[in-house]
Design a protein around this nucleic acid. Structure first.
Length: 378
DNA sequence: GAGTGCGGGCGTT
DNA sequence: AACGCCCGCACTC
C-alpha cells in the first residue's frame, strides 16, 4: 500500500543519514544492530523518512516524544510502538493575524480532548477550527516507530508531514498554564482587585505593557511552533516591549526567509536545519537539551473561546514571525540530520542525568523566566 | 483534564 | 497479513 513511499525512505535515510551498516536496519527487523558507534541527539521535529538511534538514557526518547502531535496507534506489536500524526488544527476561515500569521494549534492527543478542542473557535477570528489531517505517508498520516533494543532506542519515521507544524507540547502546556493563570487574573478575581487596591493606595502605575499578556487571549500569540525555542527572556522582553510601543523584534519578520515559498514544513529532506547559524546552540551547551523540548513558551494559545479580551488579537504584541517555520529550528550542529553523538559521550554517566537534569533545569529556568515576564505584578 | 501506552476489535487493502 | 483506526482501560502528571 505504502510501499512506494517506503522506497523513498531508504534513499533519503541513507543519504541524509550516516554511513553503512548501522543505518541499514529497519524497525521491523528481527534483530537490530547493537554495534552502534554514534547515537543521535534527540530530534524534536523528525520528518521525512528518517531513522535515528538514541541512547536508552535519553529521556525524550524514552518517552517517545515528538513535537508533532502524534497519537498512539495500535500496531498489534508490543515491541514496536507506533504513533501516527494528527496533523494540525487550523482556522476554518483560514484567517491570518494582523501580521499575516496563520493559526496552527496543536491537536489534542486524547480523542475526547480533540473533539472538545474542535468545538472551540479560532482564537483569531472566532471562526470554526478545523483539523488538518496529516496525509504525508501515501495519503495516510505520517507514522513514527519506536523500539527499545538493548541500550538503544530505535526511531523510524515514515512519511513527510504535509502540513505546518503545530505548536509544541510545551507550548500547549504553557498555554494551559497561562489559561489557568488568566482565570486567576480575571478582572473579577480577588487577586487582581487586591493589586488594584495596592496600586490605588500607592499610586503605582500598572504595568500596562504586561497586561496584554496577562489578560489577552493567549491564542493571539500564534507563534511558529519552533519559535518558542528561540524565545529567550530577552525575546519575551522584546515582545513585551513591542506591546508598549517599542519596535517589534527586529529580526523577526522574514527571519527564516522562506515564508513566501511553497510549504516547506515537510519537504525538507533534512529535518533539522539550523536557521540561526550565527546563534545556533553549541552542542556541549545544549547537552541533554539538544534541539529538543526547549520550552516553547512563546506559543500562548488558548483553547477556550471565553474570556475574550479587547487586547487579545492585536498581534502587535508579537514579533511578526513567518510561518510555517523551517524544519528543525536551531540545532546543535549544522549538519542537518547528521547530528550524532559519539557513543562514549552520551553514555557517560553524566549524560542521562545531565541530559535530563540539564533539560529540566533549562526548562524550569525558562518557564520561570516566562512566568517572570508574564506575571510581573506578583 | 490531558497525555500516554496497551490491547481488543473491526474494516480495508 | 498488514495496516489504519476506533475504542476502552489503566496509569501518570
Amino acid at each position: 500500500m505504502l510501499k512506494g513511499a517506503d522506497d523513498v525512505v531508504t534513499e533519503q535515510e541513507d543519504s541524509a543519514s550516516r554511513h553503512g551498516e548501522v543505518m541499514s536496519w529497519d524497525i521491523n527487523d528481527i534483530k537490530l544492530p547493537q554495534d552502534i558507534r554514534q547515537i543521535d541527539w534527540f530530534q524534536e521535529w523528525p520528518d521525512s523518512y528518517v531513522k535515528h538511534i538514541y541512547s536508552s538514557e535519553d529521556k525524550n526518547a524514552q518517552r517517545h516524544h515528538s513535537s508533532w502531535a502524534m497519537r498512539n496507534t495500535n500496531n498489534h506489536n508490543s515491541r514496536i510502538l507506533k504513533k501516527s500524526c494528527l496533523g494540525v488544527v487550523v482556522c476554518g476561515n483560514n484567517c491570518s493575524t494582523l501580521d499575516g500569521r496563520k493559526i496552527y494549534l496543536r491537536p489534542a492527543i486524547c480523542d475526547k480532548a480533540r473533539q472538545k478542542q474542535q468545538r472551540k473557535c479560532c482564537p483569531n477570528c472566532n471562526g470554526p477550527l478545523r483539523l488538518l489531517s496529516c496525509r504525508g505517508h501515501g495519503g495516510y498520516p505520517v507514522t513514527n516507530f519506536w523500539r527499545h533494543e538493548g541500550q538503544f532506542i530505535f526511531f523510524q519515521s515514515k512519511g513527510a508531514h504535509d502540513h505546518p507544524r503545530p505548536e509544541t507540547k510545551l507550548e500547549a502546556e504553557a498555554r494551559r498554564s497561562i489559561q489557568k493563570a488568566q482565570t486567576a487574573f480575571s478582572p473579577s478575581s480577588p487577586r487582581l482587585k487586591r493589586i488594584r487596591e495596592i496600586e490605588s493606595l500607592t499610586g503605582a502605575m500598572p504595568r500596562t505593557e504586561a497586561l496584554p499578556l496577562l489578560f489577552s487571549k493567549p491564542d493571539a500569540y500564534m507563534l511558529p511552533a519552533n519559535f518558542g525555542g528561540h524565545l529567550s527572556k530577552s525575546s519575551w522582553e522584546l515582545m513585551l516591549g513591542s506591546c508598549s510601543g517599542q519596535p517589534p523584534y527586529p529580526r523577526a519578520a522574514g527571519e527564516d526567509g522562506d515564508s513566501g515559498e511553497a510549504p516547506t514544513w515537510s519537504r525538507t529532506p533534512s529535518p533539522q536545519h539550523c536557521t540561526h547559524p550565527g546563534t545556533q546552540h553549541i552542542l556541549p551547551m545544549k547537552k541533554g537539551g539538544h534541539d529538543t523540548f526547549r520550552p516553547n513558551a512563546g506559543h500562548l494559545g488558548d483553547e477556550s473561546c471565553e474570556q475574550k479580551s479587547p487586547l487579545a488579537y492585536g498581534g502587535s504584541c508579537l514579533p511578526p514571525l513567518p510561518y510555517p517555520a523551517p524544519q528543525g529550528g536551531p540545532c546543535p550542529t549544522a549538519s542537518g540530520t547528521h547530528q550524532h553523538r559519539q557513543l562514549p559521550a552520551p553514555l557517560r554517566g553524566c549524560e542521562g542525568d545531565m541530559g535530563e537534569g540539564g533539560r529540566r533545569m533549562g526548562l524550569n529556568y525558562r518557564n520561570d523566566d516566562m512566568l517572570f515576564n508574564l506575571y510581573p505584578l506578583r
